[in-house]
Every structure is written in structure tokens, then in C-alpha cells.
């Protein structure tokens, strides 16, 4: 049986789970420079589902697609280290300021250029926005069906896919037809670690925009070993309408952004002493808050 053609959609995100005090600039904008950039966690769950399909169906090819600045090539390397076959970095100033709809548009135009695809797998949502919109929007733009909240892609054969989904109040097993978009939940298995063999093979893999200041030796190395060249596409490599891209192509506009201002409230300050805890418990019992 011939393998599947799978594309994993992934995003490099600022690690919003570890936001320190210097994360905000004085003008109230986010200081991205101080936030570590990471592989969006649920996209790693998605990659693992793709890798399991590759284990199960030999000949399967996994391409990791990400949109972002040059440094987003880091997550393509992460994907290669774990077993993805290749990657495409979609990078262009024309995409700056995209909301979820304009992002989905750019990704769907890219996917259309990538030839026949059986399954597109993405994380349910990215931690910087938590919107969970891009997967279903890409599916709609390609005219593919979608299965969201996947926990386990059970099988994908003979043009059919069976997926177990995790919903708020239970689980559902659904069958769909290929090609399809699947989005994966954090409750799915974690991604396998890097494979030492792949790290050795791909540690010098670079996208074009990372090669600007490369030495002569490095360029020779890349000419000898074409698999080290991470595909990098700009807006010129895909067919798009300018009015659908970036800020202009985004129906949602940010009207205002406020730093979080907390309202002041009179509070009683207590010591963690026995005396103060005894006082507190007495008060709470007397005013019927507890007990």
C-alpha cells in the first residue's frame, strides 16, 4: 500500500505560560524579544499523530508547514529531528498583521500549491491567541471536511479516516473521508523526543533567510546535501489576491489594547501565624462564609 501525504501545520509562539515582568514594554505593547519562542504545544501533539500514521503506513511523507518570520525555521528543524520528512517556511512581509482569516487564506493558498494531500493535521489552538480558528478555516477554504479535538487518529486507509475525539462531556468516534483537516487536542499523547540520528542529519538544515551570512563552506555543504535546504516560500510562490492578505485581508481589527489595570480594593493583610489564622477562621465562621 502506498503511504499517505500528510502536512502538519505548526506555529512558533511566544511562551505565554512563562511571562515575566519585563514582558510588557512601557508603551503597553508586548516585548516579544524577551519571551522564549517555542513550538506551539498542541502542534507537537499533532506532529505525534502524523508520526504514528507514518509508523503504521510505510511510505508516508510528512511535511511541516509554518508561517512566520525567518526564525520560525527553528520549529521545522524540531520537526525534522522527530521524524518529519521536510518542511516549508512561508515567510513574507505581505502576511504581517494577519488575523486568523488572513492566516488561513495564506496557508490554504500554500497548501493548494503543494499538490495532492491526504491529511492536514494541526494543533487545536496556539497558546498566544487560543482561538482554535485556523484549522477549521483552512478546511473551509480548501473545501475539505474537518475533525476537531482529535485525541487519536485510529486509522486512515482506503480513503477513510477514523478519529477519536475528546469533547467537553465525553468522547466521540467519527469516520470521515480523505482529504481532511484534523485538529489535535492537548489530551492526545505527547510528541516523541528528538531522535539522535535525525538530529545529526538535520542540525545544519537552514531556510534561505537563515543563510544570508553563511560562510562559503556552509554553502558548499548545502549544495552537496539538498535535504539541508528548508523550503522557504514567499508570497510570490503562491497564487493570492492582495486584498485578502495581511492587515488589509483581516476583517477583525484591534481597536484598542489596554494593559491590565487592577482595581484597588481595601484588603486585610494577615501574617501566616497561628494567631492570624485563628482570627480569620473565626471571622469566616461568624459571617457564615464557611461552616
Amino acid at each position: 500500500m502506498k503511504g499517505l501525504k500528510i502536512v502538519v501545520l505548526a506555529k512558533q509562539v511566544p511562551d505565554t505560560r512563562n511571562v515575566g515582568k519585563d514582558a510588557m514594554k512601557a508603551d503597553g505593547t508586548v516585548n516579544r524579544a524577551v519571551l522564549p519562542a517555542i513550538f506551539n504545544p498542541e502542534d507537537l501533539n499533532a506532529l505525534e499523530q502524523a508520526l504514528r500514521l507514518k509508523d503504521k503506513y510505510p511510505g508516508t511523507e510528512i511535511t511541516l508547514l509554518t508561517m512566520g518570520p525567518g526564525r520560525a525555521a527553528e520549529i521545522i528543524r524540531e520537526g525534522l529531528y522527530r521524524g518529519a520528512d521536510n518542511g516549508i517556511l512561508l515567510s513574507d512581509r505581505a502576511f504581517a498583521g494577519s488575523d486568523t482569516l488572513a492566516t488561513s487564506y495564506a496557508l490554504s493558498c500554500t497548501l493548494k500549491k503543494m499538490g495532492k494531500i491526504d491529511i492536514i493535521i494541526a494543533g487545536r489552538q496556539a497558546i498566544d491567541g487560543d482561538t482554535a480558528q485556523v484549522g477549521p478555516q483552512v478546511a473551509e477554504k480548501l473545501g475539505f471536511p474537518q475533525i476537531t479535538y482529535a485525541e487519536n487518529v485510529v486509522s486512515a486507509e482506503k480513503g477513510k479516516i477514523v478519529v477519536k475525539r475528546r469533547l467537553e462531556r465525553g468522547v466521540e468516534t467519527v469516520e470521515g473521508s480523505l482529504p481532511i483537516v484534523v485538529t489535535v487536542n492537548a489530551s492526545a499523547p505527547d510528541c516523541r523526543p528528538r531522535n539522535a540520528k535525525f538530529v545529526m542529519k538535520y542540525k545544519h538544515a537552514r531556510a534561505v533567510s537563515e543563510m544570508q551570512d553563511a560562510s562559503e563552506d556552509y554553502i558548499v555543504l548545502h549544495n552537496d546535501r539538498p535535504y539541508l535546504n528548508i523550503g522557504e516560500w514567499s508570497v510570490n510562490d503562491i497564487d493570492t489576491k492582495a486584498e485578502e492578505l495581511g492587515l488589509v485581508g483581516s476583517p477583525t481589527k484591534v481597536k484598542s489594547i489596554e494593559n491590565v489595570v487592577f482595581q484597588a480594593k481595601e484588603a486585610k493583610v494577615l501574617e501566616p501565624s497561628d494567631a492570624d489564622m485563628d482570627e480569620l477562621m473565626k471571622e469566616l465562621i461568624v459571617n457564615h462564609t464557611i461552616g
Binding site: 505565554t16 514582558a23 510588557m24 498566544d128 476583517p251 477583525t252 484598542s256 489596554e258 491590565v260
Partner: peptide
């Protein structure tokens, strides 16, 4: 709230 809750954004269409 957006961006890990450090900002509150008002969005319009």
C-alpha cells in the same frame, strides 16, 4: 484578554 492575559484587547469588525 489576549497574550497570556497581559493585555485586554477590544476587537471590532
Amino acid at each position: 484578554p489576549a497574550f497570556g492575559g497581559n493585555i485586554v484587547a477590544t476587537i471590532v469588525n
